[in-house]
Design a protein around this nucleic acid. Structure first.
Length: 565
RNA sequence: UCCGGGGUCGUUCAAUGGCAGGACAGCGGUUUUUGGUGCCGCUUAUAGAGGUUCGAGUCCUCUCCCCGGAACCA
């Protein structure tokens, strides 16, 4: 297995090709500007990470600028809580967010002025009908639309009505401003779309200053134009909006070049919920503990889980930009996480399900207590510069329950009666007996050690097939470890049955208390990731001492052998 | 039903009209004081049918399949 070469294998994609060719041809005067435009109505997730990497990445690559702009045109669901979290998450991912941070709501006045221009030019009108009627009149796929009876109001009447809409003279929902485009257009977006709606709702930035709010379509391209965006990159579902994006811009006196929208496929991952709506339901219904519950695919959860942001960026670069709908396997993301962590994570020993092991021939000191030695273990074999640490070793140890079996299955290399294994960084050990508890479970294992194998090798050249990890019973600390299955969703065929949670794996978390870990883990900085040898990568929870979340597991050959037989 | 966008190994991303390649997954081997890492090797693909061409994944025609679109959401 060789590691992927993220930055080179997909360095070229259709978006970069487009930008490159625009620069060569002098479109936009050779300028490149993008934007990342989230609506502050939820937390960012792994799907947004791709968009962020595309928006910021393309700009950076061509010496351009990428703004963070909040698309805050719908006060119903938006909140500063989300604004703050989004800024924080983008920065955590590793991108420089240029100041000032921008908001579509900062342009409300200008966008309003542009609406009056459209009205003046006979390209917009006030409609008194309700939403249901408007929707009905829009017609359907292959079916004609019906023009509103208010479509031919005079400019003066429209202007008057629109100003009174703004002044708050009408009730919520009583009237809307619509573009006068083409009610017969085959693209439904052009059938006189709504530009403004009346909504008395407190806005997290403009407060109660406005009672009318622009729709996405009537604000997005306009905001792009105001900021000087050249390449407005968005996901595929906005493809049919492009014609409207252009229509609005073509009828406005823009301060500069007309920005151009380009769509690409959003990121989907197996086992992963990437619907903001569903994620919010999971949080609101208490199915998970919060937006940073490590089972979630939110950036905050991934952070808590110890995913290195650099690995997420490399993954996004590697999967590239295309227009093909695709769902990547979560394993690919995980392989990037492992590759990065293998390079950087310090190795530590931990026993998740402890089994007591007694070395019957271990010597006592002068006072009759078992001798305590210190084994010198490397912190990371991938990086000798990380040095070594002393790990106390004595007569009574804990080993992983799985590392001993009374009856050894085929191809089982670890401890079993009569067999010899190596303790990581210490002696060879031979199992001489075991004790069963009242329930028939193995309670203790007895072994003898070979004093000549301190180096980890036998002077007579004999080999062992397995090296197991351990902690000294007298020196170990108690810890809690949480294991997760993927990111929270089972992959089931034909999932949509109405219940928003029926495709979710509710038992995807296993909390293990009473784990035994080496004392050095008490010094692990909160948030950092270590590798528990032979088990996997674990992140130290920043909020609790000695609580570890599994980041990703190690490739487990023994599990494969078991699966096959 | 209409419009738009797509269709290349199991998955995903590549391939100026010129030997279909990489990664992930899988399988086999090797190294190793982690059944980790590394290294070597193997298996598997152009949705279908015609056409243009010396030569088609790529260009043309038709068919099939998938996704998106009729919020006063974004």
């Amino acid at each position: 297995m060789s590691s992927p070469e993220p930055t080179t294998s997909n360095a070229s994609d259709f978006v970069r090709d487009l930008v490159r060719s625009d620069i060569e041809q002098g479109t936009f005067g050779g300028r490149v500007q993008t934007r990342f435009p989230p609506e502050p109505n939820g937390y960012l997730h792994i799907g947004h990470a791709k968009a962020i990497c595309v928006d910021f990445g393309v700009a950076a690559e061509f010496g351009g600028r990428c703004n963070l702009r909040f698309d805050d045109t719908n006060p119903d669901t938006e909140d500063t809580e989300y604004v703050d979290a989004i800024i924080d998450d983008v920065r955590w991912l590793g991108f420089d967010v240029p100041e000032p941070i921008l908001y579509a709501s900062d342009y409300f006045e200008q966008i309003y002025g542009w609406a009056e221009i459209l009205i003046t030019n006979g390209l917009a009108y006030v409609d008194d009908q309700d939403g249901e009627t408007i929707s009905l009149q829009r017609g359907g796929y292959g079916k004609p639309g019906i023009e509103s009876p208010f479509r031919d109001r005079t400019v003066d009447e429209n202007l008057d009505l629109f100003r009174r809409m703004r002044a708050g003279e009408f009730a919520d929902g009583a009237r809307v401003l619509r573009a006068k485009a083409d009610m017969q257009h085959e693209n439904m977006q052009l059938r006189d779309p709504v530009m403004y709606r009346i909504r008395r709702q407190h806005h997290h930035r403009t407060g109660d200053q406005w009672v009318i709010y622009p729709t996405y379509d009537w604000a997005h391209g306009q905001s792009d134009a105001i900021e000087g965006v050249t390449h407005s990159l968005c996901t595929l579902e906005f493809d049919s909006h492009r014609a409207l994006y252009d229509w609005y811009l073509e009828h406005l006196p823009l301060p500069g070049d007309q920005p151009r929208q380009t769509e690409f496929a959003r990121l989907e991952l197996t086992h992963t919920v990437t619907s903001k709506r569903k994620l919010k339901q999971l949080v609101d219904n208490g199915v998970v503990d919060g937006w940073d519950d490590p089972r979630l695919p939110t950036l905050r959860a991934l952070r808590r889980r110890g995913y290195p942001p650099s690995a997420i960026r490399e993954f996004c670069t590697y999967i590239g930009i295309a227009r093909t709908n695709s769902r990547h396997q979560i394993e690919l993301l995980e392989s990037f996480i492992r590759t990065e962590l293998n390079r950087t994570a310090l190795r530590r020993m931990a026993v998740l399900r402890p089994l007591r092991l007694v070395i019957t021939n271990w010597p006592d000191d002068a006072d009759g207590n078992p001798v305590v030695e210190h084994a010198e273990l490397g912190n990371n074999p991938e990086n000798p510069a990380d040095g070594t640490r002393p790990v106390p070793f004595s007569k009574v140890l804990y080993i992983e329950h799985d590392d001993f079996k009374v009856e050894a299955p085929p191809k089982y290399y670890r401890l079993t009666p009569g067999a010899e294994v190596r303790l990581r960084g210490a002696y060879f050990l031979r199992c001489t007996g075991y004790t069963l508890g009242p329930d028939g479970e193995v309670e203790e294992v007895q072994c003898t050690y070979d004093p000549d194998t301190r180096s980890g090798n036998a002077p007579d050249g004999r080999k062992v097939k397995a090296t197991i990890h351990w902690v000294s019973a007298d020196h170990a600390l108690d810890a809690t470890v949480v294991l997760y299955e993927r990111l929270f969703r089972a992959e089931v065929p034909g999932e949509a049955t109405g219940d928003p949670f029926d495709d979710l794996d509710h038992d995807s978390r296993e909390v293990l208390t009473g784990c035994k870990v080496e004392a050095a883990l008490a010094d692990t900085p909160p948030g950092s990731v270590v590798q528990f040898e032979r088990i996997g990568y674990f992140a130290h929870d920043p909020r609790e001492s000695l609580l570890f979340h599994r980041t990703v597991g190690l490739r487990d050959e023994w599990a494969n052998i078991q699966k096959r037989s």
